[in-house]
Each structure stands twice: as structure tokens, then as C-alpha cells.
Amino acid sequence: MRKQVIAGNWKMNGTIASGSILIEAFTSFLGDKDLDCEIVVCPPFTALERAVSLTKNTQVSVGAQNMDYHDAGAFTGEVSPLMLMEIGVSYVIIGHSERREYYGETDAMVNEKIKSAFFHSLQPIVCVGESLEQREANETISFIHGQLKRALQDIPADQVEKLIIAYEPIWAIGTGKTATADQAEEVCKSIREYIAELYTPNVADLVRIQYGGSVKANNAREILSEPNIDGALVGGASLIVDEFNEIIMAAQDVSK
């Protein structure tokens, strides 16, 4: 059975101090609970080192929200995988729609970042998703398949099977709108089927697929109960202690 992954993307929110309070609240709530799911928090870059320190010997891991695929060089403002490794980060979000829309990140760049993440033993969470216009034009599946084909170019099967793919419909990110459980399952199932075409059914069966897009405590259980959904990439709700804790426990309940 695939292990659920609940990841909180804090985006450009919080300080080292406020992030520390959140993490201490999460780790205190989880305590020594015997969890069957993975928990990841992704603070801003400035708070990563403190987050790693605070989560040491807990059930919470730390991810970055982005990275450059170069190890070093004249890339002003960027953060390399070596820098993330040095402070003990374990996960990295790649290809979030906000990176694509606001900063011109392409599928080719996503591909290079996936390769770099695996080379440096970082766990990539790779985001895909369609706009409202694409959904209304019935282009959702073909668009996402295209994203996957380009992002996975020359990625070997033994790495693909370790991927976490986050399906995040752009129209549901930060809007309060959420895909229904059936809508989310339909796309996540199609992602798994397409990976089976690109690789093998066995590889596809091992890939974990999250749903992201206004996931909250009141809809998490229904979404996470779907057979092809293996967790959630949580935005605003990951900044609210009780909300995030309830989402974690929903994942734990459906994992039993």
C-alpha cells in the first residue's frame, strides 16, 4: 500500500519566529503517535534551517518550496540543491503553478530540477495542473499528460517510481474552490495510467499522487479516501494548527 504524504506549502508566509511556533505545535500534537503517513512542512527559505533543527527526531520532515537545478554559479537570488542538502532539507516542491505563472518556469526546467533533486538525494514533489479555461475546454487530461511527458523526459524508471506528483488544478489554488473527490480521483487515476504507458504498470503503482487545491479539514477525508490519491499538498490550511492537524489525522485514518 502506498504511504500517504501530507505536505504543507507555507508559500511566502511567516517568519522564523512564527514558523517555529507552528512547527512546535505540530510536533507537540503528533508526539509519539504511531503514524502511517509522512508529514512535510515547506517554510520559506529563511526559516528552513530552524525548521530542520526543530523537527530533528520527530515525525515531521522539511521541504523547500523551490530550488535551482545548478549546483553553483552566477544565478543571483537562487538556491541550489547543495545548499538545501547542507542544512538537512529532505523534500523539494518542483513546478508549482505559481512558479510557472509568475516566474516563467517551464516543463524543461522542471525536468532539469527533477534530475538534480534525485542526483542530490532530495525527494521531489512535482506539481501539475490545469487552468479553469483548460478544464472548461475539456483539455485537462491532455494538458497534464503533456506536462508529465516533458517533465519526465529521460528520467529512469527507478527514479520515477519514487516520485511524488501533486495534482493541483490552478483554478482551485487559493480560491476556496476545490475539485470534488470524483474530479480529483479522475485526474489522479489518469496520471497513474499515463505513467503506466510511459513506463510500466508496476512503476505507476508505486508513484504517489497528491491532490492540492484548497484542501481543508472538512474535505480532506473524502479526498484522501480515493484509491489513486495518496496525500495532499496543503496551502493556507497548513498555516493553521488545528486545520493541518486534522488533515494529518484524516490521512492517518484512511491509511489504516
Results as ranks from 00 to 15, higher is better:
Tyr103Thr: 03
Phe118Val: 05
Lys113Ser: 09
Arg99Gly: 11
Lys162Ser: 03
Glu130Pro: 14
Val110Leu: 09
Thr140Asn: 11
Ile170Cys: 03
Ala179Phe: 03
Val128Phe: 07
Ile94Val: 14
Ser131Lys: 07
Glu133His: 02
Ser121Leu: 14
Tyr103Ser: 13
Glu112Asn: 15
Val160Ala: 05
Thr180Lys: 02
Ala181Val: 02
Tyr167Leu: 00
Leu122Lys: 06
Val126Pro: 08
Ile125Leu: 10
Asp158Val: 00
His145Gln: 11
Ala137Ser: 15
Arg150Leu: 13
Gln159Asp: 12
Val160Tyr: 00
Gly129Arg: 05
Met109Tyr: 02
Ser121His: 15
Ser97Tyr: 10
Phe143Tyr: 12
His96Ile: 11
Asn111Val: 06
Lys149Ala: 14
Gln134Cys: 06
Arg135Trp: 09
Leu132Phe: 07
Phe119Asp: 13
Phe143Ser: 10
Leu122Phe: 15
Lys149Arg: 08
Phe118Ile: 02
Pro169Val: 01
His145Tyr: 09
Asp154His: 01
Gln159His: 00
Val110Gln: 05
Leu152Val: 03
Thr180Ser: 14
His96Met: 13
Glu101His: 15
Gly129Trp: 07
Val110Phe: 07
Ala172Gly: 01
Gly146Ala: 02
Arg135His: 14
Val128Asp: 01
Thr140Lys: 06
Gly95Phe: 05
Val160Lys: 00
Trp171Pro: 06
Leu132Lys: 14
Glu130Met: 11
